[in-house]
Design a protein around this nucleic acid. Structure first.
Length: 735
DNA sequence: CCTTTATTTTTTTTT
DNA sequence: AAAATAAAGG
């Protein structure tokens, strides 16, 4: 390959990174500065110029999307398949190591991956079996706690013992959960990383082997690494492997998942000789868009400091539309998509981004009404759907009857008269005998431990699974899947469901057959062989991937459709035209994060990510009233709008065809003379109204929620900070 | 034991 | 408002 091809069209910073000869590199890459390009070219450089073997390079990304993109671009550049290369997500790669070295990791060869739904179920089960009150200890919170600990690399034994009964329970449940997982060979997302880390720690020879093997490690989205991920990389790198970390502190948006921006700061200390390279030229957005993004992010403190600039055009001003409610907002956005397509653009070049998945429904409805094709990423994931998980559970049972989770899941789906009571008996039987649920079914029948009716039901379940598994070795993967969804009765079961829901589920099941057909086992390098184990069956590999992959690359990828997604999943992508919807205080920045400075700054980085997705045109919308959780809420425009200098914004005038009800217009600063609903409830305060509270002193009303006796207002007190108050209790005095 | 109906809870972002 | 859960009815 011609070396000039690799570096010719790069700017100085990019070239420095691609051709770096320093021991390690920390690349601070601003949004749109050609980060992926640098990574891909760097790998090509290593292979083609430095003669590094493709198997001595490891590239880690965060999302499957990013990994896929990187593989694709590598193949394009190098003209060779990137299959066997170590390119993948942290979870994907760690899983690969665990599969290879399951013995050293202390796992059964066919360990199961739990997704968060499975994990929650298991937590609930552990709590039930140990009589932990789930009203005092919400299972979700315990799950959250466990994941938090794992992200920090702590096992239950490492959690500081505490005299606080609450903390004590958390620790105990974590411990019990750990035990169950170990006994049954279950591994959750956090465990994958934690185990992979321990794999290095406890097997120095193995670690040495890999440190020898790998010459270069590249980490994408470095600002989003959590402590366990960083520790894992550091361990693997040792003092032999060269590491290139690429990231942008302004785009760190996964703090809630344990991501630690501090890792960027520590990198230069932890990797001596690390060269700092900044990529500050943006090739993506217009001057206007970039200026807006810079203005917003400049409100954050403690940034590493970067100065993004562009040689691009000035571009159109940012359009701002104030809708009176979320319906109006959605309608406006649908119109915009329509116009965009009518101007001859591809709809796929336009994206609608929002803060929370719940917002997608209204948008979807409006697009549907307007007959505009759309594609939603995220939200309910394909492989997490109920019907799909049921089908997967049957498939798992074909391979392993002792998979208790799967037995529990489908023993009575479709309904075959095995109720909670019967399952309880089976469970206690299994516990007494120390065997799996499947075996306890057999034993219970043999010993006549069940009522007559239940016996025949359980027998028919056992027979069904046995029948389905007969002769599957002869079948292709998709034939097995289709065989199972037909014969398990799942199709019939969901067809009976009323409404469109049933049909949608049947469609999804059929889509699963499709996914199986497209599943290319060659893409998953066969790991077992290296270790002399039985190679994994195609089905086993398919099931493993279902757990790690969201499966959002499925349906209608080829239709020209607008892209809908959350801001989080938009990271790393770019679109000529971008709509940021729902920029309202309380929604974005989200209510849950806006009371603390740290949370608010992360929200702001999220806004920065959103703005910088746009190449040519950015549209921002907000609604003055929005139905959320069944209640009408009024809110003020997001502070992030105000942080954009007004010279970059042009407010869209309302079309006079849309008659907006006067009733829904609370005005900033005025006493409340608006809002019929509010008047009826005789609300004495308006947005911006100064009020006096007996305890907290003076403050300003900034937001409403609810109505009647449940009406609450958010008041920013001059001294006491921001509080939500229930109007009927708070005795606020208007000033 | 299954299905229907009433009640309660949940409302951020994801590998 | 929708989903999950609990309780009642068949």
């Amino acid at each position: 390959m011609d070396i000039s091809l690799l570096v010719d069209q790069l700017n100085d910073g990019q070239r420095n990174a691609v051709a770096a000869s320093s021991p390690h590199q920390l690349v601070l890459a601003g949004a749109g500065s050609g980060k992926t390009r640098v990574l891909v070219h760097r790998i090509a450089w290593l292979l083609e110029v430095e003669g590094v073997s493709p198997f001595a390079v490891m590239a880690v990304t965060f999302t499957n999307k990013a990994a896929k993109e990187m593989k694709g671009r590598l193949e394009e550049l190098l003209n060779v398949p990137a299959n066997g290369m170590w390119v993948g997500t942290f979870h994907g790669l760690a899983h690969r190591f665990l599969k290879l070295h399951w013995r050293e990791a202390g796992l059964p060869q066919h360990f199961q991956i739990l997704d968060s739904d499975d994990q929650l179920r298991l937590v609930k089960r552990v709590m039930r079996e140990n009589n932990v009150d789930d009203s005092r200890y919400p299972p979700k919170q315990i799950q959250w706690f466990i994941n938090e600990q794992k992200d920090e690399g702590r096992r239950a034994a490492h959690v500081m013992p505490s005299s606080d009964p609450f903390a004590k329970t958390l620790r105990e449940v974590y411990y019990l959960y750990e035990q169950i997982c170990q006994q049954n060979g279950l591994v959750d997302f956090g465990e994958i990383l934690l185990r992979a880390h321990e794999l290095w720690l406890e097997n120095p020879d193995l670690l040495a082997h890999y440190q020898q093997r790998f010459r270069n490690i590249l980490v994408d989205e470095f600002q989003d690494t959590n402590n366990i991920q960083y520790a894992w990389i550091r361990l693997l790198a040792g003092n032999k492997v060269s590491v290139m970390a690429v990231g942008d502190d302004d785009q760190s948006i996964y703090g809630w998942r344990g991501a630690n921006i501090g890792n960027i700061r520590d990198f230069q200390q932890d990797f001596p000789g690390a060269e700092l390279i900044k990529l500050e030229q943006n090739y993506r957005s217009t001057k206007t868009i970039l200026a807006a993004a810079n203005a917003v992010i400049s409100n954050n403190s403690g940034r590493l400091g970067k100065n993004l600039f562009t040689d691009g055009a000035e571009g159109e001003p940012i359009r701002l539309y104030s809708a009176f409610n979320e319906q109006d907002e959605a309608r406006y956005i649908a119109d915009q998509v329509d116009n965009w397509a009518k101007e001859g653009n591809a709809r796929a070049d336009m994206a609608i981004l929002y803060r929370s998945n719940a917002q997608s429904r209204t948008l979807e409805e409006a697009l549907l009404r307007a007959g505009i094709p759309y594609r939603i990423y995220g939200g309910q994931r394909f492989y997490e759907r109920l019907e799909i998980k049921n089908a997967l559970a049957y498939l798992r049972l074909l391979l392993n009857r002792d998979d208790d989770g799967s037995v529990e899941r489908v023993i009575n789906v479709p309904a075959r008269a095995i109720g909670e009571k019967t399952v309880d008996i089976l469970r206690s039987f299994a516990r007494d005998q120390g065997c799996s649920l499947w075996k306890s079914c057999e034993l219970a029948i043999a010993n006549n431990a069940l009522p007559k009716r239940a016996t025949s039901s359980v027998q028919s379940f056992l027979d069904l699974v046995d029948e389905m598994s007969a002769g599957i070795e002869e079948l292709e993967l998709q034939e097995i899947v289709s065989h199972v969804i037909e014969n398990s009765g799942l199709i019939e079961h969901h067809k009976k469901e009323k409404g469109e829901k049933g049909q949608a589920r049947v469609d999804n099941l059929e889509e699963l057959v499709n996914a199986a057909r497209q599943f290319d086992a060659d893409e998953e390098p066969d790991l077992a062989e290296e270790d002399g184990d039985q190679p994994l069956s195609e089905l086993a590999q398919f099931l493993d991937r279902a757990a790690l992959d969201a499966g959002d690359g499925q349906a209608d990828e080829y239709e020209d459709a607008v892209q809908l997604m959350t801001l989080h999943s938009a990271k790393g992508l770019e679109f000529p035209q971008v709509v940021l919807a729902g920029l309202e205080e309380g929604l974005f920045p989200h209510k849950m994060s806006m009371d603390e400075a740290e949370g608010l700054e992360e929200e702001r980085r999220l806004a920065y990510v959103g703005i910088t997705r746009a190449m040519d045109q950015l549209i921002i919308t907000h609604a003055e009233s929005r139905r959320l959780y069944g209640q009408e809420n009024f809110s003020t425009p997001s502070r992030f709008i105000r942080e954009i200098p007004s010279e970059y914004i042009s407010e869209v005038r309302l079309k006079n065809t849309v008659s907006r009800p006067l009733s829904a217009r609370p005005k900033l600063g005025g006493a409340i003379t608006t809002g019929r609903k509010l008047l009826d409830d005789s609300l004495p305060y308006g947005l911006g109204q100064r009020v006096l509270h007996a305890m907290f002193g003076e403050g300003t009303v900034v937001q409403f929620e609810g109505q009647g006796n449940g009406l609450r207002v958010q008041v920013n007190f001059d001294d006491a900070g921001s509080k939500w108050l229930v109007v009927s209790f708070a005795k606020l005095e208007a000033l």
